[in-house]
Design a protein around this nucleic acid. Structure first.
Lengths: 216, 216
DNA sequence: TCCCATCTCCACCTTTCGATGGAGATGGCC
DNA sequence: GGCCATCTCCATCGAAAGGTGGAGATGGGA
């Protein structure tokens, strides 16, 4: 198994980066790019067709996020191995990607050698998380989970809503909004809504893109 | 001039992306990558040595930002032409890059053909701004400039400081802080500090990275 | 069944924010 | 000199936010 060629699927929406990856990997002995996909839905289709040993996947993808893709494909193909390759997407994404079953998490800033070494390692059944990532993951582990409702409120805060507006939006009283806020401030380890908003963005709890379009 | 090979310098800190770009460009007829740099300072050194026709440059770079690099090099080499190539960096960066003298602004999501066409166009003396970018640029043009002091205050807001803390930090009275806030809320077109914070992050007025490290 | 998390709401209180309408000082620009 | 932007500060006000200590309802899990 280790002497055979490792069949790789590359899932990445940025054309330049994807073509770059393919070009890089194809000149490496023992690696072969057997498929490419530019979004999550395409990733699933291509995966089923080419059954790669390793899937190199970005988290931010059009149509369907990387985490969902990993989750879906891991259910139907027991041996599937995923390496998340991303620029930097907040602690929350790292956490969810590993939860979903990714074996490694790499930043695009790493060297080609590191990338290849990681592909080989994961193919051999190992796991690979860079120290910097592991560090942040550990921090995130220490923090309490937000309840669904607290998350709803936090989302509204990030979108600049007042307590009254949040109450209207979620169809609850302002008192309840305050209760949730009080609770989530504690869990996030911050003291006011502005800090909560920036923390949520920075950790990737609420995606920055959601700010541009009012209606998601 | 148009029949000769276009000499390109690639400035990009992500190894994978950079090598991808180099691999892509080198197989194109009429293009030649004559240099690579992984950070701003290196970019300046390499530029001086190889004197490229076109410099493909990312904005987020270690040691020295892309905007500063462009500004510096444009002063010493009159014919230098720059194409900014980035994922997405808030309206503020687009604006400053073009101000600094970049001829084109491309997202990494574009196709290889677009990239090559843009390089040729810029080399021929043209300018190229994608419609989506131009759109946002126009919006940004309509907004008033923040004064230096207002920017200071906004920065503190993004970092989660209260008015009292900001007053202490900037060594002014809380009343003055309020005055600045009132003014910047109006200029940003928002109604409270939380909206100001998210707007600042989203537009790239205050970099998201500055949140992680309290002391810049 | 009992426990616990969650969601909901209330009252009360203090602090903080944001809005308004001032005003004096500085320094650059015409 | 006069104009204008900027920075600084003041008082006052109402609205919003945050803290505290409750409490009832629900529903799932041990």
């Amino acid at each position: 198994m280790s002497k055979e060629t490792i069949r790789v699927l590359v899932v990445e929406d940025h054309h330049v980066v994807r073509q770059g990856l393919v070009a890089l990997l194809n000149v490496v002995d023992g690696l072969e790019v057997v498929g490419e996909a530019a979004d999550g839905v395409e990733a699933i289709t291509v995966f089923r067709k080419c059954q790669p040993d390793i899937t190199l996947i970005d988290l931010r993808l059009p149509r369907m996020g990387g985490v969902d893709v990993i989750q879906r494909l891991r259910m139907e193909t027991h041996g599937a191995r995923f390496i998340v390759l991303t620029t930097y997407d907040g602690d929350e994404d790292i956490y969810r990607a590993l939860q979903a079953g990714a074996r490694a998490y790499l930043l695009k800033g790493m060297t080609t050698d590191e990338l290849i070494a990681t592909i080989r390692a994961v193919h051999a059944g190992k796991q690979h998380i860079p120290p910097a990532i592991a560090q942040r993951l550990a921090e995130r582990m220490g923090t309490e989970e937000l309840t669904p409702r607290e998350f709803d409120v936090l989302e509204q805060i990030v979108h600049g809503k007042s307590n009254k507006e949040i109450a209207t939006e979620l169809e609850i009283s302002e008192a309840t909004v305050k209760t949730h806020i009080n609770s989530l401030l504690g869990k996030l380890g911050v003291t006011d809504r502005t800090q909560a908003a920036t923390a949520a963005i920075q950790r990737g709890i609420v995606p920055l893109e959601s700010l541009r379009k009012p209606k998601q």
